[in-house]
Design a protein around this nucleic acid. Structure first.
Lengths: 209, 209
DNA sequence: TCATACACTGAGCAAAAGCTCACGTTTTCG
DNA sequence: CGAAAACGTGAGCTTTTGCTCAGTGTATGA
């Protein structure tokens, strides 16, 4: 038992091949978690699937959770890159309310539907790290603000606080989409619920009293 | 390596003390999962906490998952026993819509708030078994039906399909309550969102166009 | 009373998962 | 070229976890 207690800094990729290795690990992790779930998504299996030795994996990730966090971070980033331009377009082009809501609802459903099983594993089965939670809140806040910008400028909308309403919209749409896509039920068309959600939000936002 | 391959049937509790043992296991499991999460909620830890040997635990539960399922079943049953009478009372006593919605929203929040961390572990972190999923849907269906009975008889409600609307109400209230209670944010009063949810649903259900 | 079924014990096994490290291979760059 | 740095390898160590089983205590009823 030698007295070597050197800190082992995680290797940073410099050359091209090592960057490819990191990509391979992340992609393999996505597939493995999607197929086997969080618990059975072992580091050995990930390395196997990536066509690498387990040692290579630990050159770039200190532990299993680091891989999950990286995966979640990418997933959230991808969502933002699709959602934000679309939401910014609303405040710029100012479509009718019903159209805007349809875009938000169907857009959110589509985002959830991209890889539902991976999404489920990452955001339900995996113990939430503070880091991922912070990223999710950031996503939610920014989305809400953009929706609020649209609502505030929309003449049909007659709600007191459009930014509070926007948070309600974002919350409801996200949760309902999540439920519909991630835990679908056999005899139920998700479109019926999507349409009804749009109707509900429309009536909420256009106070006709 | 002897040739004994006898089937070992799980023991059913007959005497009083064994039934107490089962209770102790379930209660200990609740505490351990609440404190340590699903993965770190090991059978040894549960037995320890229950003041029993690990052997006793395996007399009554074939594996770890069986304990989780039993726990979830009890949790769902408990919720039903509170929720159903309350929802039945609505259709019987026919309070004004806003009062009914307030009862539903605050009641649901209270149910979620009973043991939020255990709730989170059971219904997020734990891989969903088909059995638990079925129980959850049963709970949802029955709640929706009862809400629908109220909505169908409520003169203020002017929605086409009250039972579809009821499913929307149940879905939204459950998801929003879950989000608010299980993943609370620092600077946010959940009551603001609760009130706004009530307002949203009220406007949705009373089509004034 | 005492035989029998019921109940409980806990050392420890088998399997699996996370992770290390000493060593070989490839790339870079003077 | 050739040395140093970057990169890749995989047998196997360590720890943990789910779970067993041979044996000991405890209640029950004939």
């Amino acid at each position: 038992m030698p007295a070597k207690n050197l800190i082992k800094p995680r290797r940073m990729p410099r050359q091209g091949r090592s960057r490819e290795t990191v990509e391979a690990i992340v992609e393999a992790a996505a597939q493995v978690f999607e197929r086997h779930g969080y618990a059975a998504g072992t580091t050995n299996r990930i390395a196997d699937r990536a066509g690498l030795s387990i040692g290579s994996l630990y050159q770039y990730f200190p532990n299993k959770d680091a891989i999950v966090v990286e995966l979640a971070r990418r997933h959230i980033t991808d969502i933002g890159e699709v959602a934000w331009p679309a939401l910014e377009a609303l405040a710029r082009e100012m479509p009718p309310l019903r159209e805007a809501l349809a875009a938000i609802v169907f857009g959110t459903i589509e985002l959830h539907a991209r890889s539902p099983e991976l999404h489920r594993v990452l955001f339900e089965e995996t113990p939430r790290s503070d880091e991922i939670q912070a990223l999710m809140w950031e996503l939610f806040d920014r989305s809400s603000r953009l929706i609020g910008d649209y609502l505030a400028a929309c003449p049909e909308v007659s709600v007191r606080d459009p930014y509070l309403a926007a948070r309600m919209v974002a919350q409801v749409v996200d949760q309902v989409s999540h439920g519909a896509v991630i835990h679908p039920r056999d005899g139920e068309a998700p479109e019926v619920y999507a349409r009804e959600t749009i109707t509900m939000l429309e009536r909420y936002l256009t106070e006709l009293g």
